[in-house]
Amino acid sequence: MNLFLSRRMLLAGAAVLTAGVLSGQANAQQPSWPSKPVRIIVPYPAGGVGDLGTRAFATRLSARIGQPVMVENMPGGTQIIGMQALIKAPPDGHTLILASPTSLVLNPALRVSLPYAPEKLTVISKLFNSPLFVIASNKLQANTISELVAYAKANPEAVHYASTGEGSATHLASALFAQMAGVQMKHVPYKGSADANVDLMNGQIQLHFDPGAGTLALVRDGRLKAIAVSGLQRSRSLPNVPTVIEAGLPGYDVHSWWALAAPEGTPPAVAEQIAAAVKQIVADPSLAEQGLKLAIDYGATTPTESAAFVESERRRWGQVIQTLGLKRQ
């Protein structure tokens, strides 16, 4: 009996030891994040709303995780240059990108081939969103949406509008407006809002659908004028400016959004860790206050919610592209 008990105790002890070893191996296999500095690629020039909104977040992320968080600007190519840098990085959560409708939704819908696969990226969390402000040159003889539409109808293609690139979100938002209003306007692509605003102030172009805080500063200084704002509600940043819908174009509901994404193959556990950090950071009232100055609203989603949202945006903008008659190039 004593021998039997000893064997049973020995077997039980071995089982406990084995479980402990397996548990230790499992813990050792769990990805560690962060284990080094984090880099966030911003595929825009410095000084724009995407750049400034990311930097405000990155400062707080660094404080929370105890690692440096570097923001690296890589503008150009309708965000393709930044995406190419992202997919070359190890999928360990230490290189992220500020993704947008342009990089995740519109590029694959409008381009025959891309050097990256948007559907394979890990979309971690939405980060912030903003309406588009309908900004006009002071030299444009229109101060309201109805006056703009009347002027554009009387002067086909006399209104030149800026965007952040062929096939970008601001391009499609402007084209959708023209289609819904029944007017013809001429598209002029730029690398970023800053360059577009210089020409807008000089009167070389007349219109710009833009979410940028820098643009709003020019409006407040009187160097540009805001005719309307997209979306269903007025912006807290310019509460006296009506929505496009209020101003007489029913159904025009467009806004910009930005999300954090990581390379294909990023471990789900790491994505969840980053998303949890985003959720905690965007709850900071001081960040919300900073967002108000930039005309953006911070928010967070889980990786599952983020993937579902991007898929819904692909369906939505796919219908818009079809309505506009745009072809893949």
Rank of each mutant, 00 (worst) to 15 (best):
E272A: 15
G167V: 11
G231V: 05
T301H: 01
A178E: 05
R316F: 13
K225A: 05
S230F: 10
F133W: 10
Q233H: 12
V198L: 13
L96I: 02
I145E: 08
Q79A: 13
L3G: 00
V270T: 15
A152W: 05
T170M: 10
W258Y: 14
N129I: 07
W317T: 09
A58P: 02
F57A: 03
A228L: 07
N73L: 04
D221N: 12
F209L: 15
A277C: 09
V278K: 01
Q84M: 15
I296C: 05
E157A: 10
P131H: 06
V241E: 01
D221V: 01
P189F: 04
Y151M: 07
Q179T: 00
G291L: 10
V159R: 08
V105T: 05
E272K: 14
T243F: 08
Q204E: 12
A142V: 04
P268K: 13
L114M: 09
K88I: 01
P68F: 04
Q233V: 11
P90S: 07
N143L: 01
S174H: 09
S286Q: 13
V320R: 08
L121A: 07
V49W: 00
V229D: 09
S113T: 15
G47W: 05
V159P: 00
F4P: 00
A109T: 04
Y116S: 09
V310L: 06
P68S: 09
I41V: 08
Y44S: 14
G50Y: 01
M201D: 00
I145C: 02
